[in-house]
């Protein structure tokens, strides 16, 4: 069963990911976590996302394409990356979410993926 682990980051964490001085501190917790997921052989896919400032939100209105700068939802924490993992059940997915080294304000959302459309 596939689950998505969605990692939400605070603005400070988005900044720390790129800041030459703070990068190392940010990644030294996350890289081992990423490796542990890979070593467990459960990763289907995953990606880190650029900060929400780089987002464009696209809507269609009366057939017109409306492009807005910024993310869809204007919340403090924003989606910063995700993993899709293949694990037997929700409890196992939650166990993996609990191992995410969240910074202050950071959190993980766990959602079951829909089965593939056949």
């Amino acid at each position: 069963m596939n689950y998505s682990l969605l990692f939400y980051l605070s603005p400070e964490e988005f900044e720390a990911r790129k800041d030459p001085k703070k990068r190392e501190a940010f990644w030294k917790g996350f890289l081992p976590y990423m490796q542990a997921l890979k070593d467990a052989g459960i990763v289907v896919a995953g990606a880190g996302l650029e900060a929400p400032g780089a987002a464009r939100t696209v809507r269609l209105r009366d057939g017109q394409r409306l492009v807005q700068d910024g993310p869809f939802a204007d919340t403090k924490e924003q989606l910063g990356g995700f993993f899709i993992i293949d694990v037997p059940d929700l409890d196992t997915a939650l166990d993996w979410a609990a191992r995410y080294p969240a910074g202050p304000g950071g959190l993980v959302e766990v959602r079951p993926n829909l089965p593939p459309v056949s």
């Binding site: 081992p32 070593d39 191992r99």
Partner: peptide, 11 residues
């Protein structure tokens, strides 16, 4: 160590 750190739940 990295493996143990990656599997940690407790900060």
């Amino acid at each position: 160590y990295n493996r143990a750190i990656g599997l940690c739940e407790d900060p």
